[in-house]
Each structure stands twice: as C-alpha cells, then as structure tokens.
Simulated assay, not measured.
Amino acid sequence: MALFEATNVHGGYGGMNILNGVNMSLEADEIGVIVGPNGAGKSTMLKAIFGLLRVSEGEICLRGESITNADPVELVKRKMAFVPQEKNIFPSLSVEENLEMGAFIRRDNFVHMLEQVYSFFPPLADKRRQPAGELSGGQRQMVAMGRALMTEPSLILLDEPTAGLSPLYMAEIFERIISINKAGVGVLMVEQHAKQALKIAHKGFVLVAGQNRFTDTGENLINNPEVAKAFLGG
C-alpha cells in the first residue's frame, strides 16, 4: 500500500480549475519531486493535499484512507506536515521556541525529537537560543523544516525548500532532505531547481497546465531528451 496517492485531482480558486486531473503516488521510503513551468499547479497541488485548497474532483489518500479535503489540523494528527515557501518561521522567537511550536499537538515528552532535529540540522544546535529571524536564509529554512518534523510525520510536504538560497545552501538543504528520508519520512516537494532536485528523487512528476506531462523515476526524467529540453534547460 502506498504511503500517499492522489487520483485524478481537480481543484482551483474562484471556480477556475488549476489542477486538471493530477495523479501521484509515493511509497514510505521515497522522495517525490514535482517540477514544471510557472503556473503549472505545483504549489497548488501541495495545498490541495494539505487541505488548504478544496478538491472538486478526484481523491487523495494517506495509507489507503481518503483524506480528500480534510482539515489541516486533522492531517497533522495523522502524521502529515507541510512547510510553505514563505512566512514559515516565527522571526522573533528563538530557534528552539520555533521547534517547540511545531510540537503544539503533542502531549508527550518531545525532548528526544528536539535532539533528532538538531542531529538533522547541526547548524541550529549552536543557535538554539538565537532569534530565528537573525539567521541566514538557509538556516531559516532548516528551522521551518525542523519545526515540521517535531510531530514525527510519515509524510512531509515541502514547497520550494531552496527558493532564494545560494548554490551552497541549496546543496546542503538537499542533503538534509535525503537524511530525513533515510530516517523514515516520505518527502514530496515542489522545486524550481528541477535538475538538481530530480537527482535526489525516487519519483518525479512533471506538471503542465495542471496535468501530468511526465511521471517517471528522477533518473529517467533527467535522461529523457524531451524533458531535458523543455524543463531542465537542455
């Protein structure tokens, strides 16, 4: 049984569809990457999965159970996490306070998870008392991802995790994503740096006009001449 599956998903804003029949599936040990041109529906798909956008047709399942149009708080309780591209930290709170905010639904002792997050993101450990707003862009992204991990999700959704980052930080964020996945968390992310992201992807989904244009392994998509020419800069 797949960890996550979306079948023929339609949805949009103000009565206008942006998603026009998207299909995706992901196993528990996989990284999935959604790529495509601007306006293709990539980020919209993540919002639809996380209950932030109403699905008008189709079905989304988590571990075989329908979560179509479920409330985001309910999805967090069901071990899904979402990291938006913007406004994804509390700038005035310390790094550790940001992480603790990620455990808002927990009633157990989550100290072990704090330490695991610091093991995923070592730069944060030394700055745990520092206001998150004072960190570099890459480190702020680590805080956002770390906060999402505090609920110990089985699936994490990442919307453009390397947006605005230097190539050095981009490579580091991708390394952290691999580590998170190897620790047992399924990852589904939208990424503008398509070629670099597909290199770490088990599955890739190329969306165009709200539909799957290509679906394959990351490696096969990189080596597909049509995909390379149209979506990967040659």
Rank of each mutant, 00 (worst) to 15 (best):
M189E: 00
L207E: 00
N224H: 14
E219N: 15
Y169K: 01
Q141G: 02
G210D: 01
E30P: 13
N109S: 10
Q211P: 00
I180W: 01
E191S: 10
M142K: 11
L114T: 12
L19E: 02
G138L: 01
A132W: 05
D159A: 09
R129V: 15
L149K: 09
M101S: 14
V55W: 13
K127A: 12
A48N: 08
L124H: 04
Y13Q: 15
M150H: 06
M189T: 01
E65F: 00
G14E: 14
G58N: 06
P91R: 02
A194R: 00
H112I: 02
V9H: 04
L149F: 13
Y13G: 14
I67R: 06
L168F: 13
F205D: 00
I173V: 15
A209L: 11
V73C: 08
F231A: 07
N69E: 08
A197S: 09
E160T: 00
Q192A: 03
D108E: 03
Q116T: 06
L198C: 10
E219L: 14
V187W: 06
L149Y: 11
V190T: 02
I18E: 09
G58I: 06
I156H: 05
E100N: 09
V22C: 05
E226W: 02
A6Y: 05
G233H: 04
M1K: 04
P225I: 10
